[in-house]
Amino acid sequence: MLCACAPLRLAAVGVVTMLLAAPAAPAEIYRCEDKGHVRFTDRPCDAQAEPVELRAPIIVPAEPHPDLLGDSDKKSAARRKARDAADAAWVKDYTARKAAEERIRHGRMTRTVVEGMKPDDVRRLHGEPDVVTKSRGGKTERETWRYTLDDGTQLHVTFTGGAVSAVRTRESKKP
């Protein structure tokens, strides 16, 4: 059984189909000024209104891009790894410096010459050297101080770069 509204439905479907299939007409844009306010509209504001010439829009084609979040995570991980390496290097250097400072402090307390001491430290412990010998090996300049201790033992202290680099003792030969 057909109802009387069937022709109306067919007509409505036909109109909708034609509207969807019809190409969209370019709409005209008008610039309107009212009390210092500018607005754009699709209808003329007054009888003298003329459409505004618009430049063609810039269309940027969408290109596939790598995973931005993944890239960010990789960069963050690289920065974290570099920071951790720098921190580890600092801790290693700090630990070495503290150990050297402790070794020198212990040497001062026990009145023993140790590597890393400065010339003033050695002078405080043993005074001025009996003999000073200077030598140069390439770019390195060395200075060796020799002391004769109270028991006749000879103490040789070598400085490289302004710090003790070697300490040797030599027993004296008894007649």
Rank of each mutant, 00 (worst) to 15 (best):
D71H: 13
A96V: 00
R43C: 10
P61H: 14
R43Y: 08
P61V: 14
L54S: 03
A99L: 09
V113T: 06
D42C: 00
I58H: 11
E50D: 10
H65Q: 15
A96E: 10
W90V: 07
V114L: 00
T110A: 09
H106K: 15
K98E: 13
G107V: 00
V91A: 09
E50P: 03
L54N: 01
R111C: 03
T95H: 00
E33C: 08
A47G: 06
Q48L: 15
K74T: 14
M117G: 02
E101Y: 03
L125N: 04
H126E: 00
R83Q: 13
I29M: 10
G70L: 08
A89P: 08
R97I: 04
E53I: 12
W90P: 04
R124M: 08
A27Q: 14
S72R: 15
Q48N: 15
F40P: 02
P44N: 04
A100R: 02
E63I: 15
P26R: 14
R123G: 10
R43M: 09
D120C: 05
R97E: 12
Y94V: 02
R108M: 06
A89M: 09
F40S: 07
H106W: 11
A62R: 13
A96L: 02
H65R: 15
R31W: 01
H106Y: 13
L69Q: 14
K81D: 12
I58V: 15
T112S: 09
P66I: 12
G36R: 06
V38N: 01
V122R: 05
K98V: 11
H106R: 15
R97Y: 01
Y94I: 04
A78V: 08
R123W: 08
P66N: 12
D73S: 12
R108K: 11
K92L: 04
R103A: 03
E33R: 03
E33W: 06
K35V: 07
D34M: 07
G36Q: 02
H106G: 10
K98L: 13
H37A: 07
A88Q: 02
S72T: 14
G107Q: 02
R97V: 07
P44S: 00
P57F: 06
H126W: 01
P51V: 04
D87V: 10
G116R: 03
A86Q: 06
V60S: 11
V122M: 06
M117H: 05
R55H: 12
P57A: 09
L125M: 10
P57G: 01
A99R: 11
E28Y: 02
L125P: 02
P61Q: 15
E50V: 14
A88G: 06
M117T: 07
D73M: 13
V113C: 04
V52A: 05
D121G: 04
E63K: 15
A25S: 11
R39T: 10
D93W: 08
E28L: 00
T41K: 03
R55I: 05
R43I: 04
W90R: 11
K98Q: 14
A96I: 07
G107Y: 07
R108T: 02
F40E: 01
L54K: 03
H106M: 13
R111V: 11
D73Y: 13
T41Q: 05
P57R: 09
R79W: 15
A56I: 04
K75F: 12
P61G: 14
P119A: 01
